[in-house]
Each structure stands twice: as C-alpha cells, then as structure tokens.
C-alpha cells in the first residue's frame, strides 16, 4: 500500500498555488491535511502526478465574523473549529464546533482541514452538510480570478464539486446563522463516516420556527436538503412541531444509494430516526 510516484511542490501563496496547478495540469492536485487524499493514494485509487502542498499558505487559517456571516479560511483545521466555542465569534453557528467533534478522531482532526473536506466532497462529511445547512458561499481562486459558488451548487455528484481542477478553495462563508441547531449521526462503529446523518437548524421568532434547514448526509451521493420537511416545520409553533411528519417526509424524500432493498429500507428508517432526534435536539438548544 505505497503510493505511486508524484512530484511535490510547496506553495506559499494562493497565487503561487493556482499558477502551479494551472501549469501542471489536471493530473496535479492540491494537498492540505491529506486525511482523505493520502489513504486513497496509498491504495493507489488516487494517483496525482503532482501534489501542491497548500498548508504553508499563511492567510487561510482563520475564523472571523463579517456581520451575520462566519468566514472560515479553507485551511482551518477541524480541531481548530472543534475548539472554537467562543459565543461572540460563533453566535448562530454553535453547531459547527459540535459537528467537528463527529469528524473521525483527534489525530485526523489535527491534520484535516475544512477546505480539504469540502473539496473531497464525501456526502456524509460534516462540513459538506454544514455548508448546505448554513448556506455557505465557497470562494474559489483560479487563474482567471476569483468566483463564489453557493453550497447548493457546489456538490455535483459523488466526490465531485463545482471547482475546476485549477481552482483553489480559499474561504467558506457561512451566511445564515440560526439560533437552534443539531446534528444527529449514526455509524456502526464509533468515529467512522456516518451511515446516515441529519442536520437541522432554525430560528425561533415569536415562538415559531423559521429559516428551517434540514440536510441529510451519507444517504445519497451528495448531501441533500429535505425540502418538504423544511416546509412542514417552517412557521410551526415551538410547542406543536410535527416531528413525526417531518421525519416521515425526510425519510420518504431520500433515494438511498444502496440497491439492496433491505439496506435501502434501513437507510430510510435511519433518516426518519435521525431527523426526529436532530429536531428534538435542536429544539432543546433553543430552550437553553
């Protein structure tokens, strides 16, 4: 399980990184923490001709507030987000540190980055779900300048994103803070990628739920929003949330990747349960 040969380059600025990859072509790849890429390289399932190490680009490791938005540099490590619990910084995004705790284990979180996770685009990855839940804007730096892609447009299929090969994800801007939020996940073994995961967030205004977001991860090829369930909850009174209805709707709305009928049925059941639990937990965060 040794990787194939590759060239190695270290970029110290975003511009340098982009220029390098533009020059090296599609077979080259950026590497940040490498916690998803390197296992695939060790199995020789990924064999980039060159790696451009972006970990030494100085200014992409930061968490900042910009009005309502939370702006996270792409090289921010999972561990940094996990331990960023200052309410003045994280207000409205308290779910993010909680979500970080679900990512693998400590030695993975010390190396892995939020940008790397979004570029890898595993449908069960916490940051992919959070990006959709908090309507993230993903800023890319490319040879023709910068552009921004909304999270809803980011995921193009399994492990596939809207970024072109020569574009570098530099910043994730979570745009819609919410008072209440929860993430419910299930994996058979602790710390593994989720078999299924459901994230819920909403505000409570005048005792009613609004800005409801529900994102389901790990069941389809990309993280998906449970639109019908969101609609069901929108405007619901806190004391009379139709949790059953929302959970059933979320479960009915997914198209599990598993072709085996029993496994597919199980995934739906799991979505039902996790939706239920995430809504309950999110309501509880509002009570506090």
């Amino acid at each position: 399980m040794k990787p194939a040969r590759f060239d190695y380059h270290r970029a110290s600025t975003t511009l340098e990184a982009v220029a390098l990859i533009d020059d090296l072509g599609e077979e080259a790849k950026f590497i940040a923490g490498g916690q998803s890429l390197v296992p695939m390289m060790n199995f020789r399932l990924a064999r980039p001709s060159a790696l451009i190490d972006i970990m030494h680009i100085g200014d992409l490791d930061s968490i900042q507030r910009d009005g309502d938005a939370l702006v996270v540099g792409a090289l921010t490590r999972h561990r940094t987000l996990e331990t960023s619990t200052d309410p003045t910084l994280m207000g409205g995004f308290a779910l993010l540190p909680t979500a970080a705790r679900w990512i693998g284990h400590t030695p993975i979180r010390t190396r892995g980055t939020i940008g790397g996770s979004l570029m890898h685009a595993d449908a069960s990855a916490e940051w992919c779900m959070m990006a959709r839940l908090f309507n993230a804007q993903l800023r890319l730096e490319g040879p023709r300048g910068r552009r921004t892609v909304a999270a809803d447009d980011w995921f193009q299929g399994m492990f596939s994103t809207a970024a072109d090969f020569n574009e570098l994800l530099v910043e994730i801007r979570f745009t819609t803070p919410r008072q209440c939020g929860a993430l419910a996940e299930f994996s058979r073994r602790h710390g593994d990628f989720a078999t299924a995961a459901v994230a819920v967030a909403f505000d409570v205004v005048d005792d009613r739920l609004c800005n409801v977001g529900i994102v389901i991860g790990g069941v389809e090829g990309v993280p998906v929003r449970a639109g019908e369930a969101e609609t069901l909850l929108e405007g619901a009174s806190v004391g009379a949330v139709d949790v059953d209805g929302a959970a059933r709707s979320a479960a009915a709305g997914v198209a599990p990747m598993e072709s085996e009928p029993r496994e597919a049925a199980y995934r739906r059941h799991l979505v039902d349960t996790l939706t239920r639990r995430a809504i309950h937990d999110a309501l509880a965060t509002g009570v506090q």
């Binding site: 190695y8 270290r10 490498g34 916690q35 390197v38 970990m55 561990r79 993975i108 010390t110 190396r111």
Partner: peptide, 15 residues
C-alpha cells in the same frame, strides 16, 4: 506536539 497518523503524511510535508 499534536497526535497525527504518520502513514497519512508524506515526509516532504513534514519538512
């Protein structure tokens, strides 16, 4: 000072 998987880091990255 941080625990990492040495199998998931290339030596050149650790330079």
């Amino acid at each position: 000072d941080e625990p990492v998987r040495a199998c998931l880091i290339f030596g050149v990255q650790a330079d």
